[in-house]
Write a protein that binds this DNA or RNA. Structure first.
Lengths: 198, 198
DNA sequence: TTGACATGTAAGTGAGTACTCACTAAGTTA
DNA sequence: TAACTTAGTGAGTACTCACTTACATGTCAA
């Protein structure tokens, strides 16, 4: 029987939650499985989180703090928009690869969570991702880097599908995806659309 | 107590399965809810499908028959590639809007189904969608419509994210999405990338 | 008219769910 | 070292799940 401080256990539980979502899907996320992965009894989980719901909310909190903070920082940088968009996309992709369950949590549960708070938190994250992408594109247009005839909102809509494209790619070619360069490959396509003068 | 032939009930059950996935998500899909929507007892469902799994497989079968058939037909047409890609994308989007649960079923469950048969059926569908998209792009390049320096595989990867972009859009702006023109808007962006000469 | 069959219901089953409870052991501090 | 807090256990709660069973009834061919 190993005893650890609650902060450590909370981290372990969040990791376990994400890995179960990634490997077995949301509908197989049970407290029993979380307890098994953490290596404690089911009851012990409830020393560190009051409910299963709070475990999931804690994961969403972390996305807010870690991923969104880094995306905000990149979007606010003062470098050429194309460099910034690449950095933005790469940071985005890197986080999703390191925390594989997040994609499913955000994209497939955002719409259907019975819990209004959980739902609105996830929608807020998606909305901000889109807003930041639009900001970078608008910046690139005002500096003349990119063509102004492109519809920025539609472009950002397309951008939002990229994380799932990554997931599909990982599933279709397991082991065979060069995740390092995934963001560069996608930007190569996006860049053509951004520069093209109709 | 209304009695209907099993073929009719099977259709009703498939519809109910899809509408629950769409409105409440995969993790809220229970036989009890399916029975409620169909308007029969839970036991009655098992007269028409042996298991819940078979209900889901029947839905996947229908996607195979209806959606993939229409996509295959469009891809094989002999018209300019840009026309064909628009038709392809619009057929794709139209089907997903008419059968809203499909997107979640395919994209979020494909990776995590415990059931190897279900998983391989869904991956086959995703793979073929990508293959058909690549075919159209390659055709457009050989006729000189599109620029040959574009990486076709990466382009198709990006294409595969569009259905989820649509879903995100529907969730972020409920009621406010012009779904009719969604495919046209996306093609407007994709077309810029396809035509652009580096 | 009958009887077989298809379709239905209601009331089960066992397994799984989130969560709680009484209790125990390890660490910290007075 | 005794008192107190924190982190653990394992059995038990009420409930939901997919699925089954026993039985009823509408349909239709013989």
């Amino acid at each position: 029987m190993e005893r650890k401080p609650t902060e450590i256990r909370q981290e372990e539980i969040k990791k376990a939650v994400l890995s179960i979502i990634d490997q077995e899907g949301m509908h197989n996320l049970s407290t029993r499985k979380v307890a098994e992965r953490v290596g404690v009894s089911e009851g012990a989980l409830f020393r560190h989180f009051r409910t299963k719901r709070e475990m999931i909310l804690a994961v969403v909190d972390e996305v807010e703090e870690v991923l969104m903070k880094s995306l905000r920082d990149v979007a606010a940088e003062e470098s050429p928009a194309e460099d910034r968009l690449l950095k933005f996309l790469c940071a985005h992709v890197r986080y999703l690869i390191a925390n594989k369950g997040i994609t499913i949590l955000l994209f497939s549960e955002a719409a259907h969570a019975n819990d209004p708070e959980l739902k609105s938190r996830m929608l807020k994250i998606l909305n901000e991702q889109k807003r930041l992408a639009k900001k970078i594109v608008n910046d690139g247009m005002s500096t003349g880097e990119w063509d102004k005839s492109l519809n920025v909102d539609h472009f950002a809509t397309l951008y939002m599908g990229i994380p799932i494209s990554l997931n599909i790619e990982l599933v279709l070619n397991p082991g065979g995806v060069n995740t390092d360069n995934f963001c560069k490959k996608m930007l190569a396509i996006l860049g053509r659309a951004l520069r093209s003068g109709n």
